[in-house]
Design a protein around this nucleic acid. Structure first.
Lengths: 255, 255
DNA sequence: CAGTATCCGATGCGATACTG
DNA sequence: CAGTATCGCATCGGATACTG
């Protein structure tokens, strides 16, 4: 059987005779390869993540991906639309354009989630710490905040990150819990309302809490998080502060 | 609440003040983003697929990815090694180098599989048909062939694809079922053994069968597949011919 | 067999400005 | 707000040849 093995020479190592078309792709019929061609281009996965997280409008998508250029975002959305993964919408009343996942797109949820779960388990926290970003953190918090434990009146919470570059230091979350579902707004400029709860922490700590690496009480104990203002809001913070969808996933290594 | 919304301006649309480092990455702490940075570069997913399918040696990996250059494969493997996803091995006896998945890499299996499942369900078969490749098909068949229904003696099966460019028309699968686990070899040159079963089909049909879009009896009925030689091998072909891991997945659209 | 070394071209993408 | 238009550079990766 030894010499027989040599009789196989992959068409790949071939003479390069007929490789004209499909240049850019992998040229494989394997479903994994085809899916990779769709999902592999830069920013695509993050566009899908944003849509799966509920963002619908162009500039909301941008907030979740600060570094993407509008041109490229537009291009990616068109590509995904052509593929039948994303559908363009138009609000009946306002005429505002938007985007949503199609059924095919929705079925990418387990793919994206499994990627995130794996990332949370295996990619070193060090990497996370290189990628701290207050705007992304606050935008995520805005999205996942759970108003259930909050009182049924407008609540203003101010976040202060002393270690962050000027201009991104202060943030306000405004929660308005009206008839069961709540509106949460995020501001970088003082909205002028009385603040019900002040939160002070370094960005790294707050991010760690968000990612489930640390809890609110722990951070307070270690002196890395200071709360002041309404007592009830303080003690319920771990509850109303929604965590990252991957927060419960156990870390395996910090290589 | 209307005007309040305006008070938020994402740090992304910012002045571009301090975006010096981490240029190439996404700059996000989100696990999905971090995983994307790892898995997003070209060929990486396919390298992992090959390893998860059992290939261990450099040139076997190449057979599964005919179009990757050795330089790039080498680079990808080093990157994955640095990440702790892949480990380099050395055969104790022969000293042959090789690669295997680490525990972290093994946990990527559900990620890759879900990508493939999605691809099989939602990406048009048309795309598959653009990517026909006899060497990939035969290499996959070699890998997934199930020797269970085969007799316990050396078996030679010849495949002929009349529609394929000369040099890739004929293939031989040699199955040697010795003491429970079998050795399967693939050749492009006549190994010289007596052929027990002849298979003639166009490449597209054989690929469709492999992908679970069509069955052996169907293809025979439609006159797209001809078998000759040992009867037992003919009738058990659907059984010994292992199918693509995604073959059972239902197609949803052929856009 | 298992890679390295080198070169070079296409293009992806970032940055910026502008429009309806 | 929701994109389009344009420009230019870096870099990714393809091709090829070579080595231990």
């Amino acid at each position: 059987m030894e010499q027989v093995q040599q009789l196989y020479r992959p068409g790949a190592l071939d003479t390069g005779e007929e490789r004209k078309m499909n240049e850019r792709g992998y040229g494989q019929f394997c479903p994994v390869a085809m899916a990779s061609e769709v999902l592999g281009s830069r920013w695509t996965i993050l566009v899908l993540r944003e849509l799966l997280c509920g963002s619908q409008r162009f500039n909301d998508l941008r907030k979740g991906m600060p570094r993407i250029s509008p041109a490229l975002l537009s291009k990616r959305l068109r590509e995904l639309e052509d593929l039948g993964v994303v559908a363009r919408t138009t609000d009946a009343r306002s005429g505002t354009p938007g985007y949503r996942m199609t059924e095919a797109g929705e079925e990418l949820r387990p793919v994206i989630m499994s990627m995130g779960t794996w990332g949370q388990r295996w990619l070193e926290s060090q990497l996370s710490l290189k990628n701290l970003d207050p705007s992304l953190l606050m935008w995520d918090m805005r999205r996942n905040l759970d108003p259930t434990p909050l009182p049924s009146r407008p609540v203003t919470i101010q976040f202060l990150y002393p270690d962050v570059t000027k201009g991104q230091k202060k943030w306000w979350l405004l929660v308005n819990k009206e008839d069961k579902h709540a509106a949460v707004d995020l501001c970088m400029l003082d909205p002028g309302f009385d603040v019900d709860l002040y939160v002070v922490s370094d960005l790294r700590t707050m991010t760690a809490i968000w990612m489930g690496i640390m809890t609110v009480p722990q951070a307070i104990d270690e002196g890395k998080l200071q709360l002041s203002g309404e007592r009830a809001l303080q003690s319920s913070m771990q509850a109303w502060l929604g965590l990252s969808p991957f927060a419960q996933e156990t870390k395996r290594v910090n290589a």
